[in-house]
Computed example of a mutant assay.
Amino acid sequence: MYANSATAAFITAILSLERCLCIVVPLKVKKILTRRRLVVVTSTFVAYEIVFTGLLIGRTGPPYAQISALSAFYLIFSYSVISLVCFVIISLTTIFLIVRLNQNLSWRKRTSTAAAAGQATSNKEAKLHVVSS
């Protein structure tokens, strides 16, 4: 169960990072997120999970048989640390995404001839502006 939640948090963090990079640096995203780099990051995550899950089960016995200091240490580093790191990544990428989208919205408003003529912005932009305010 914990391994599934850690894996889900990791995948969500990768998707959030990719989405943020597509908005923040759209022309460089293919150079930053290459297939090889994503395979290396995913393989590292899988190895990390295998090592700590193996240590948890192999060195401390079946899960939940006894909670010792060693098993608590393995549980923290196998599940809690990953969830915390993924939460921080998702939070930061969301903040960068919101800031960049607001900058783009204000730039479009300044340069738009429709905004200069006093016409209303599009429905999506109006909703974005209301949500971000």
Rank of each mutant, 00 (worst) to 15 (best):
M1S: 14
M1Y: 09
M1E: 12
Y2M: 13
A3G: 11
A3S: 14
T7H: 02
A8W: 03
F10L: 07
I11Y: 00
T12L: 08
A13N: 02
I14H: 02
L15G: 05
L15C: 04
L17P: 00
R19M: 09
C20G: 07
C22D: 13
C22N: 12
I23W: 04
V24A: 06
V24E: 01
V24M: 02
V24G: 03
V25F: 08
P26D: 06
K28T: 10
K28R: 11
V29S: 05
K30Q: 13
I32Q: 03
R36T: 15
R36G: 10
R37S: 09
R37C: 09
R37Y: 09
V40W: 05
V41A: 15
T44Y: 00
T44H: 00
F45A: 07
V46N: 04
A47W: 00
E49L: 04
E49P: 00
I50W: 03
V51M: 08
V51R: 00
F52K: 01
F52R: 00
T53E: 15
L56C: 07
L56K: 07
L56Y: 14
L56M: 14
I57H: 08
I57G: 03
G58I: 01
R59W: 02
R59D: 09
T60A: 12
T60S: 12
G61A: 13
G61C: 11
Y64V: 04
A65Y: 13
I67E: 12
I67M: 09
S68H: 05
A69S: 15
S71C: 08
A72P: 05
F73N: 12
F73S: 11
Y74F: 13
I76F: 11
S78M: 10
S78T: 08
S78G: 14
S78A: 15
Y79E: 15
V81Y: 10
S83W: 10
L84T: 15
L84W: 13
V85H: 01
V85C: 10
C86P: 03
F87Q: 06
V88F: 14
V88P: 04
I90G: 01
I90K: 01
I90E: 06
S91E: 04
I95F: 11
I95P: 01
I98R: 07
I98T: 06
V99Y: 06
V99S: 05
R100I: 10
L101Y: 01
N102F: 06
L105D: 03
S106L: 12
S106W: 05
W107I: 10
K109C: 05
T111D: 12
S112W: 04
A116W: 06
A116K: 15
A117K: 09
G118I: 03
G118D: 07
S122D: 15
S122H: 06
N123K: 11
E125L: 15
E125C: 08
K127E: 15
H129W: 02
V131K: 09
S132L: 11
